[in-house]
Design a protein around this nucleic acid. Structure first.
Length: 198
DNA sequence: TCATTAAAGTTAT
DNA sequence: ATAACTTTAATGA
């Protein structure tokens, strides 16, 4: 959790509830608020001209949404969509900046967070250009697994659907599925009732 | 080689 | 029940 809930409440953040698949903001909207998920999951995405979804990032409890866009004066280049029922705190941008000035600690945490986001983007950028599907999926899984201590083989259950993995790596689902099958054959992953262990 | 299309089976809501 | 996800197979770039 990047900013404590009590602090957000104390400066007048409002609680908003979203249904699954409800839009939080759309591409082209001007960023006006800081959003923080209290409960639920959301995603940042784009659609290619032929309608294929590209997931930019997946967000869960405690995480902020699209915060990097608040620091400049440009419309959102992405959509934010709730993927489950969500309870989200929303704080007007101006008050958000007051908070940053008031609490150096929050400011520092925000920089850390932006750094993490950039890191993920850089990792995924190498991925999207060229490379074979196996390499793409491994880069994604390595990144996800890096957050847990246990690093032994097959100790990490990928918390994503094949659909999501495909949308994050720019593959089509079928290719993702076939590639994962090959990876199972090559002992890179194990599959236990459809869950991928890496 | 991978994407696309279609069709069918499976799981989650 | 209905939608979302998974899987397989055929076809085309």
């Amino acid at each position: 959790m990047i900013i404590k809930e009590e602090i957000l409440h104390s400066v007048g953040a409002s609680i908003r509830h979203y249904k699954s698949s409800e839009i939080i903001f759309s591409e082209g909207d001007p960023p006006k608020y800081y959003y923080q998920i209290i409960r639920g999951e959301a995603k940042l995405n784009n659609y290619t001209d032929d309608g294929k979804e590209i997931i930019q990032s997946l967000l869960e409890d405690g995480q902020s949404i699209g915060e990097s866009l608040l620091f400049m004066d440009r419309p959102y280049p992405i959509n934010a969509i709730a993927t489950t029922i969500c309870k989200i705190l929303r704080l007007p941008k101006t008050i958000f900046f007051d908070l940053l000035k008031l609490y150096p600690e929050i400011c520092l945490d925000m920089n850390r967070l932006l750094s993490q986001r950039l890191y993920f983007k850089l990792i995924m950028a190498q991925n999207l250009s060229s490379q074979n599907p196996t390499a793409k999926l491994i880069v994604l899984m390595d990144y996800l697994k890096s957050f847990q201590k246990e690093q032994s083989p097959y100790s990490f259950m990928i918390p994503l659907t094949r659909q999501q993995m495909a949308s994050l790596t720019g593959l089509c689902v079928e290719t993702a599925i076939r590639t994962i099958k090959v990876m199972e054959k090559n002992r890179i992953v194990k599959i236990k009732d459809r869950k991928i262990l890496y």
